[in-house]
Design a binder for these strands. Sequence first.
DNA 1: CGGGATCCCGTAGGATACTG
DNA 2: CAGTATCCTACGGGATCCCG
Lengths: 123, 123
Amino acid sequence: MESKDVEPNLYDRNCGSRQVLDRIGDRWSVLVVLTLADGVKRYSELAQRIDGVSQKMLTQTLRGLERDGLVSRTVHATVPPRVDYALTDLGRTLLPLLSSLQAWATGHLAEVEAARTQYDTRP
Amino acid sequence: MESKDVEPNLYDRNCGSRQVLDRIGDRWSVLVVLTLADGVKRYSELAQRIDGVSQKMLTQTLRGLERDGLVSRTVHATVPPRVDYALTDLGRTLLPLLSSLQAWATGHLAEVEAARTQYDTRP
DNA sequence: CGGGATCCCGTAGGATACTG
DNA sequence: CAGTATCCTACGGGATCCCG
């Protein structure tokens, strides 16, 4: 099969789908999107909620998500300034997947940790 | 079900669930697991299939997945040596999620790229 | 063939200070 | 408050050599 309908190959480093996957796979992106799951959040709320993220990384992550059309950014011309972030429709389509991921992570945490200790304590 | 249910907080950097998520979110881990979806693979097969991965990263990724109990590693004492990698039962439970992720990436690729160009070409 | 060990570089990413 | 700008370090990750 070699039509122009290239059937996106995730394993090809030049394929766009891989870049999309990279974004999804990003540490902070996942956490940001999940945080925005329950509605609009301000910059400071995000920073507060997501433990360990530096403002540089948070800003960078938000820009990336905004660029990819997953998150919308709304600036209110007030004093003090206020910026709201929310999921776009596209971003919302990603939500079920990330929730599943979250569920898997918490649900299988015990097994993973067990595997780790077993791996670490062996000949 | 027990009283110890601290309800794993993904947003706490010290919570194990976040480390699990980090592993899943890893660039190469996802691709390796997906590659192993259709059965046992040798080291060289993986290296060949996954474009752009260095052997160092491949080895490192495989070790990580093995440690977390997602992938099994079988060494055959032959000459030349032969090492087989396969998903464990635990690893297989992750498969549907990653497939969904893959589907999302390819399915929404166009929208994401559109959003990008729009973002890049604006005041 | 499947990696372990080294060397080395680029950059991701943290801390801090400054601005609109 | 919500960033940008700067500096600086750690580490991701590539290339190379070598061994079981």
